[in-house]
Design a protein around this nucleic acid. Structure first.
Lengths: 210, 210, 210, 210
DNA sequence: GATGAATGAGCATTCATTCAT
DNA sequence: AATGAATGAATGCTCATTCAT
């Protein structure tokens, strides 16, 4: 991870590269030690650069954190397959959501830790709080459109209250991520629970008897 | 929630009282500023006592935190009405769980913040991690017994896989608490989502068609 | 100047003592190295105490500087013999002023350095600027009363414009202090100049021909 | 006084121009924030050039400061009309000195701030101290020659001790500049005091009765 | 001439903790 | 039970300076 410690002046990276590298490291540190354990110096050391060099790229610890937040959001949106080849039905879309969650949990479990850290930070840091709100808003919109589509397609029942349904869904998604990352550690158990909830939600939304 | 507000009212408390007061203050601080923002000196100041006096009661910052953790667990178990007048059916018990959650969210929203902080801490601090595990274990047992009871009573369907069902339930409970505290802020919205999920779970567990 | 470096916990001084000692040291440092060269750590080291202990007594570098300013003003007022046994005539009072200046220059030359540093700081730091203004105001009042007394006593001529006379006097006093401390370094030369200006002022104020 | 304000107008200047501009900026910074507040980077930014480019022109912060000092001396000598059309009498020359002072105070008040900063610096920085001494020496010579001329011309009295007279004069000049810049802020007041001191000095030097 | 990236040394400040009283 | 004074080990941040391009 370090480059060539011998030379006094390290191989210069182009600014953008460096910034991305540093943000990446910072995110790892947060996932490992939490925001509480994020030390500016540690990030610099990990990157194999000097304390002050880090300041050259991020004038503030806060700026570095902002970088992490930005990257995190990009990462999250990437997976939540917005532009994917359009799935035909709302049901398929819904299933895709659960699948995306399962994949993300498998491939980037650290992401969820950082997300949780961020949520807590958002309570105090208004800048982060705002971004959280924005993300939740986008998420709601996306899920709302799926449900409305389902109703229009006649797959979901008419009696669904879209708002509540979306809130429930989000709560459930968050719960899965939260519990999977911070609670039970057995992988299979989590996958089973995801499947369980997915079926449960599906049945609830499609239930004809209402 | 604070007692000695203004901090000039130093009627000598008996040791136990003091300790409880101090833990209470610490918990408030954590809820307000996070573990990251918990300062030993701040707790002392808030309590109107000297820096060193706090050390007389808690030999370590860690000890103070342990106190908070203990109090938190007591608080959580208190509400999850173990010893209440025995509800007749498993269904009633299940409904009670959701009701307890709603009540706790209403009366002690701060609790959920601290719980989340604790979960994150539990990832790094083994002592806390162990307590988390223990709490989750108790919770699982409790929910398992409810579901088994329901099956035995013929209210819940036979095909339920108890383990997965419990994991799902816990994930959903956590998700509700997590989202309610750190996400959407409108009370009504949350209540509606809880009701929605409760009905959904109920239908899923009781669904005869399986 | 240091006490007993061996022991881990130094002999505790009572707070007031310590504070005075620390302010005194800080003032010396300023006189020697200027405000620019005032390092919190250096003061602590000179006092033989730990970095953090200095912070126990002064929560801020600024607070320490405020202490220096306060001490400085006390020192200046001390010498500007307000409460001395009342001198009979205005002329005697005036001569006393020059004499005080000469004495102060002899006994506490560092004072003038610090005063000059303060004047410059006062341009930027409003807190110090205000104290400077206040000091100049008191000084003006004092000199005004002397001159008015002289006129009333018939020693000084009537045509004196008190305001201008006082401004001139203060400028001359400051000039002497300033030049003596930061310019020519031969003691005799300065004394001669003080005497010269004193006579010159005296003649100007008493000149009958106007 | 600034040139490239906004800093986007980087028409390549010839070397000397650039240097002068940079020194000028540095002097402004010193006048505004003091030596203490002089930052190499800030000067570069103000000039709209890069950090490292400033180092191309001045290899050291000290070098930049030397530039400021040099410019300052040039500025001071410029006004003290050495080569002007020769005034006839010593009295006229003396009056010219006061007039020059008044003009300089009016047109370049910042100069006096920087001069004071320099004087303080001269106490610690030998290079600057030497230049200060040299300047004072030239000044003494100039004033001495005036006084001697006056005596020869029979305008000033014989009993004058030239050395003391010069020291007094310099102290008074410095005092006026110092007080005008760092003390009283009303312009009229200062002008009156200058006039007052000028008349007083004149009378003292010409007084026949000795 | 000019620039972006990098560096080391230092500085004010914080915080958990200790100890004598 | 309580307190004032003291401490060491960080931590975020600044600044003059350097170097390859």
């Amino acid at each position: 991870m370090k480059t060539d410690l011998g030379a006094r002046y390290k191989a210069k990276r182009c600014g953008t590269d460096r910034r991305e590298q540093l943000v990446s490291i910072a995110m790892n540190v947060i996932a490992t030690k939490g925001f509480e354990g994020l030390r500016f110096q540690a990030v610099a050391k990990e990157a194999g650069i000097n304390n002050a060099t880090l300041y050259y790229h991020f004038q503030t610890k806060e700026a570095l954190i902002q970088g992490v937040v930005a990257k995190l959001f990009a990462e999250l949106r990437k997976t939540r397959g917005f532009p994917k080849d359009k799935p035909a039905t709302a049901l398929q879309e819904l299933r895709l959501e659960f699948q995306d969650l399962r994949d993300l949990l498998r491939t980037q479990p650290k992401l969820f830790i950082v997300v949780t850290e961020l949520s807590l930070r958002g309570l105090r840091d208004p800048a982060i709080g705002a971004m959280e709100k924005r993300r939740d808003g986008l998420w709601r919109d996306h899920l709302s459109s799926i449900i409305r589509l389902g109703i229009k397609q006649g797959v979901f029942r008419r009696s669904i209250h879209v708002g509540s349904a979306v809130t429930s869904l989000i709560a459930q998604f968050k719960g899965i991520g939260y519990h999977a990352t911070l609670g039970a550690r057995k992988r299979g158990e989590v996958d089973a629970a995801i499947a369980e909830i997915a079926r449960q939600v599906e049945r609830w939304l499609t239930c004809k008897s209402d």
